[in-house]
Each structure stands twice: as C-alpha cells, then as structure tokens.
Design a protein around this nucleic acid. Structure first.
Lengths: 186, 186
DNA sequence: TTTAGAGTGGACCGTACAGTCCAGTTCTTG
DNA sequence: CAAGAACTGGACTGTACGGTCCACTCTAAA
C-alpha cells in the first residue's frame, strides 16, 4: 500500500503498472485482486491513504501556528521539504487531482473532499489568528483559506516544473503578505 | 494538431492514444509518423502549440491592464472562461506540467519555459502598474509575478477538482488583495 | 507518356498491460 | 487429526497500444 502510493506519487497513475506495484510490494496478482476489485479500487485506496496521511500532517503542523512568525516557519518547512525532495514530487493530492479529475469521477470527488478537509484545517488556523487579534475581527476566513491552499498548490506545481523551490517560496511569501494585509488597522 | 491538442487537454497524454488522434484528424498512421518521429515528438509539438497560443492570449489580455479595475476585469474573464468550460479543463500548460514533469525531461523544460514566459508578461504588467504609481516605486516585481502565476494555477486546479469556479475566484480575489497591499502608502 | 520520388493508406507486428484462473498451500474449526 | 474454507503463486489470456512496413497513388519534370 505504502509502496504503491510512493510509485504512483512519483510516476503518476497511468504510468504505474500493477506489475510494478506487485514487485515493490513483493506480492502476487491474486493477493492484489483479493484485496482490490480492480486498478481503480487500488487507486482510490491510494488516494484515501495519501489524503489521510497528508491531512494528518497538515493538521499537526497547523495546530502549532498562533503568530506570523510560526506561520512563516510552517511555510519554511514546506519549502525545505520540497528542496529535500529535489522538487521531484509536488503535493500527492494535487498531482493525483490534475491527472484524475477529468477521467475518474469517483476519484475526483475523493480528491475534492481531501482538498476541502485541508482547507477546513487552514480555516481553523486562520480563525485562531483572528481570535488572537492578528486578523480583522469578524473576518470570514473561508475564501482566504481557499486562497492559501491554491497558493500552496500553484507554488508546488511551479516548483516541480522548474525544479526551483524558490518559486514555492515566492508564492508562500506572497500569501503571507496577503494575510498580513487582512490584519486590523493598527 | 489542433484536434490532438484538444484531446490531450481533455484526457491527458497517457490516456490519449494515437488512434484517437488519427481518428479526430482523419489521418493515417503513416502521415503522423511522417511529421513526428514518435509520440513524444507529437506531445512536444502539442506543448509548443498550447504554450504559443496561451501566451499569446495572455499577452493580449495583460497588455490592456493599467488599473486595479482592469486587473479585476481580467481576473473575471478567467473565471468566466472556466465557468463556460464547466471547470472540465484547467490550464493546458498546468495540466501537462503536472503529468509530464516527472516522466519527460524535455517536456518539463518546455513547460518550464512556457511558465517563465507567462511570468515575464505578468511582470511587465506589474511594472506598468508600478510606473503608474499603483505599486511601491522601486518594487522588484519578479517574485510577485511568480506569485500571481502560482495563484492562477492553484486556483484552476482547485476549481477543476471541485468543479466550483468560486475556488478560482477566491484565489484571484486574494492575489488582487495581495498586490494592492504592495501599493505605496497613501 | 514515361518515370522517379515523395507522400499515403492501412494491414500488420511485438509488447506490455489489466485481469482471470486454478492447482497447491495454509489456516480454521469440529 | 480431518475436512473444508480461505488464501496464495504465478502462468495464462485477450486486447489495445506504439510503431513498422510496403504496395499504391499522386505529382512533376523530361
């Protein structure tokens, strides 16, 4: 399962054959077809696993954020992670979404839910900043949360395409500036 | 060519077979292999065509922007276009980048160049806004240009995945707010 | 009208893929 | 320990794909 997720993350769904997955997992066809009805079912399981582990990690990271400095630090961990990977993988959910949104309706819905869950965690983080007085009181944080998520996804895509983590940093610095512009007038 | 580009845009590269392309173009295998060495060459030609037509359209749209209102209007045309497509295609360059960046190095470089060209046009637009006094004098527009591009890409990906053009609008509204926060203090 | 050469149609090929199948093995239960 | 159920290995199948090939047609120059 974890092996399959890694292969698919690196190569994409269409480019990953079941034989590769089997070799990586040191399993046989009958085992795979015992647990999954077909390749699509395996892909959906991979999506569920990636979504769960990613959202868990995101929640963990976001829960610590209670100031601009800690937000910047979280952004910096994203850039550092991307740099450590040599920009060879973007966001697993984002990559799967780009590939599957138009060809697999069930997968698209799973991925949309994963994005929504991520956005919801971003929103509670923004709500916390607001309660601490860092954002305008009464601000609706729904749209800003989508914007932060979009910026992360776009930054990751640019970084992956140009192999330059600075593109991601530029995006995250900008979204930090945007959020600060929502601060109450001092 | 145009037909092949449309098919690939809608289905992705791996999911589009040469037979489909041939049927759409009402051509035969030998014609295709007369003009292209192999499928990868066809894909690269599609990339070049998509990049050229998209950058041309972007340049056209950006050249008219000289105020916040015209910037917002351009953003609105992006949302309207996405809505008209029922969010079934994102950015052709972005989709290809997500699929090919890790599997086709030559394609990745072509796509990176396309992004850079797009970012360069965004930058000249931002420079124009700065000259008009809407942005802080002396501001380096390189990073903001990357940020705008990242936001567009991320917004398109979210809109395509959730089939909700409002996600794109949320992203563009945010990037508009970010740029305004770079205005000179009045 | 002949003829060389470029261009074309589409049958054909090898391969790699998703998915099937069954003989054999390991677990479970009485 | 016996018998059946559940699981496993991996050979096998049908097919759809990218790519090749060659007989044929059309063009144009002499």
């Amino acid at each position: 399962m974890v092996g399959a997720a890694g292969l698919i993350e690196r190569q994409g769904v269409e480019a990953t054959s079941l034989d590769q997955v089997l070799a990586a997992a040191e399993a046989s066809k009958s085992q795979l077809y015992h647990y999954f009805a077909d390749k699509q079912a395996l892909v959906r399981a991979v999506i569920a696993w990636q979504a769960a582990s990613l959202v868990e990690g995101v929640e963990e990271g976001l829960s610590r954020i209670d100031s601009w400095a800690s937000l910047d630090a979280w952004f910096e961990t994203l850039v550092a992670h991307q740099q450590a990977m040599d920009c060879h993988v973007g966001c697993p959910i984002g990559s799967l979404a780009a590939e599957l949104a138009d060809t697999d309706e069930a997968a698209r819905q799973d991925l949309a839910r994963a994005f929504d869950s991520w956005a919801a965690h971003l929103r509670t983080m923004l709500d916390r900043l607001r309660e601490r007085g860092l954002l305008t009181p009464g601000l609706d944080t729904e749209q800003p949360a989508y914007a932060v998520l979009a910026m992360i996804q776009g930054g990751l895509l640019l970084a992956k395409t140009t192999r330059d983590p600075e593109r991601l940093r530029a995006a995250l610095v900008a979204v930090g500036g945007y959020l600060r512009s929502l601060a109450p007038p001092s």
